[in-house]
Amino acid sequence: MRSLIRAAWRSFEMSTRLRVVSPWAYLNWLVFPVIFAAIGLFVLTSSGYARVAYGVLGGGVIGFWSVTYLDGGNSIQEERWNGTLEQIFAVPTPLVVIVIGKILGSLLLGLLAFIPTVGLAYFGFHAVLPALDPLRFAVSLGVLSFSFFIIAVALTPLFAISRSAFTVLNGLELGVYGLCGFMFPVSQLPQWLQPISYALSPTWATRALYASATPSASGDIAGWWLASIGLSALYLVVSVALYRFVEVRARVSGELALA
């Protein structure tokens, strides 16, 4: 067990170091979130205080999600380009342990996205969240992190099975912005789309996060936390089967290498 923890830690360390020296990583946690936050703040600061949380936090949540989910997948694609994907696949450490380390690194980097976006909100738009409940906010952020972490851990191995899976999975990143209510409430979506939103764990965690920062918000925040955690647990169970599938599929197709 200790050797597995050490392997996960080293994977976390390596992935973080590779991100820090990569100029592209800064796009995801610094540049893109600021652009989203700026758009959100322009639109939402004029629409009343109830929506300000979306403006102040929306860009950060988008950045957080992008880095956590996409960097995990990117790192698998980079391993393929480096020619190291086959090597990490054929070690005695299970792939899931290596992926957990990588995603923890992405999660940490993703949290940094809140710094520029909240900074932009405060200094650029004088938008503040005076009614923020620190305890509820912290728990909600923890639940949101957990939901992002589980989704990323579950979906990242799919990047390994096919060189073209990346294109499809990239699309999911954008869909989640809208479906999970990062920049506007899910209630604004068409009725037929809302059930999909409610089946996604970040929807509930995001709702709890924004509610804990909004004075007029009402609702069962604890219930939303539980809904998010429950859905995440369900994803975790499904991901066990997914990892088995990926292991077999990658060994059949031989697509771990570039050619």
Binding site: R10, R17, L18, S22, N82, G83, E86, V91, I98
Partner: peptide, 25 residues
């Protein structure tokens, strides 16, 4: 495998070896 790929170029040789040593548990 032959060729130049299969290593983390932006890290040191020692870091490469230490990483794989941990993955080999």
């Amino acid at each position: 495998f032959g060729g130049e790929r299969g290593l983390y170029w932006r890290l040191s040789g020692y870091d490469n070896l230490r990483y794989f040593a941990d993955l080999y548990r």
